[in-house]
């Protein structure tokens, strides 16, 4: 955040002789650029410096409960993660009032000009494939960012193209929207499984696992990898059951042999028995290293799924200029 020192100063924080400036006196809204977990996102200009920022606006709920826990969680995690080049930087946090007199909370972020969802959509609209090297560069940055987040003891829990911000010019990719993230604690709590956009949701979550960890994010990364290659979501289900069936149809129905303990998960039933389809058929256009990495990301058994850190060492990334990214 803008005003943060390394250690809090002994003098009182921001004591003034008058009321503080309102958020909207400091920023000029330029355009709406999207929706976050809990509010609209605007492109804005900081009046004092002319710097372009993203304002993530959340209306404080009428339930008289102050700052929403999701916002608190996002801010506190970003305070810990924002120093990484692959995590979007939180610059400040402001509170203000809208015309209706409702209290509004603004998270002020560095501005990125697009996101991966729009980026893929652009190629799909032109019936073009994203160049293989671009896919590789983006995937490398994604694995690096996820590795950093996991290394800091945080699960993202909602990785999807829309939450990956990009700079078109430099091809820089940054993880955003940590509204559903949480710090991993020990013993691992029973987490809610009402999270994550369905298409990128890991099978253990869909099957009702309440104890899950970093592999849920790796599954999402695998789904994003496939989507970058084909311009199409890999598993576009429209309900939890349909989502599971979609996965089973393509990757084969899991069993105790390939995933010990799967039958004990709360939502496990007797499912139709499908045989796995080869990844090269599902995701045409990758080289053998790419298929190997994708397979490791989409392993059914969470413990067998590759970690983000290990993924970075995979031969698929051998020709990435690691100095730059």
């Amino acid at each position: 955040m803008a005003t943060i020192q390394n250690k809090p100063t002994p003098t009182a924080p921001s004591t003034t002789t008058g009321g503080g400036l309102r958020a909207m006196d400091l920023y000029e809204k330029l355009e709406k650029v999207g929706e976050g977990t809990y509010g609209k996102v605007y492109k804005a200009r900081e009046k004092a410096t002319g710097r372009i920022v993203a304002l993530k606006k959340t209306r404080l709920p009428e339930d008289d409960e102050g700052v929403p826990p999701t916002a608190l969680r996002e801010v506190s995690l970003l305070r810990m993660l924002s120093q990484d080049p692959h995590v979007v930087r939180l610059l400040d946090l402001k509170q203000g009032v809208n015309k209706e007199g409702q209290t509004i909370l603004y998270l002020v972020f560095e501005y990125m000009d697009t996101d991966l969802k729009k980026f893929i959509r652009g190629y799909r609209a032109n019936h073009e494939k994203i160049p293989a090297q671009t896919v590789k560069i983006l995937m490398y940055q994604l694995c690096k960012g996820v590795g950093f987040v996991h290394g800091r003891g945080v699960l993202h829990r909602d990785l999807k193209p829309h939450n990956l911000l990009m700079d078109r010019k430099t091809m820089a990719l940054k993880i955003a929207d940590l509204g559903l993230s949480r710090a991993i604690t020990v013993p691992v709590k029973k987490y809610t499984h009402e999270i994550l956009t369905l298409w990128y949701r890991a099978p253990e979550v869909l099957l009702g696992a309440t104890h899950y960890s970093t592999p849920v994010d790796i599954w999402s990364v695998g789904c994003i990898f496939a989507e970058l290659v084909t311009n199409q979501p890999l598993f576009p289900g429209d309900s939890e059951l349909q989502q599971l069936l979609h996965i089973f149809k393509l990757l084969g129905t899991p069993n105790e042999e390939m995933w010990p303990g799967v039958g004990k998960l709360p939502n496990w039933h007797v499912y139709p028995q499908w045989k796995p389809t080869k990844l090269s058929t599902l995701v045409p256009g990758l080289d053998s290293d790419g298929y190997d990495l994708l397979e490791k990301m989409l392993a059914y058994e969470p413990g067998k799924r590759v970690s983000a850190k290990k993924a970075l060492e995979h031969p698929y990334f051998n020709d990435v200029n690691k100095e730059v990214y």
């Binding site: 955040m1 943060i4 809090p8 924080p13 921001s14 008289d64 409960e65 102050g66 700052v67 608190l72 801010v75 506190s76 995690l77 305070r79 810990m80 946090l93 509170q95 710090a183």
Partner: peptide, 17 residues
């Protein structure tokens, strides 16, 4: 409780974990 939430969060520099 609610009246003091923002001053608390700001003083803590949002370091809440």
């Amino acid at each position: 409780i609610l009246n003091n939430e923002m001053i608390l969060l700001k003083t803590l520099d949002f370091d809440l974990i």
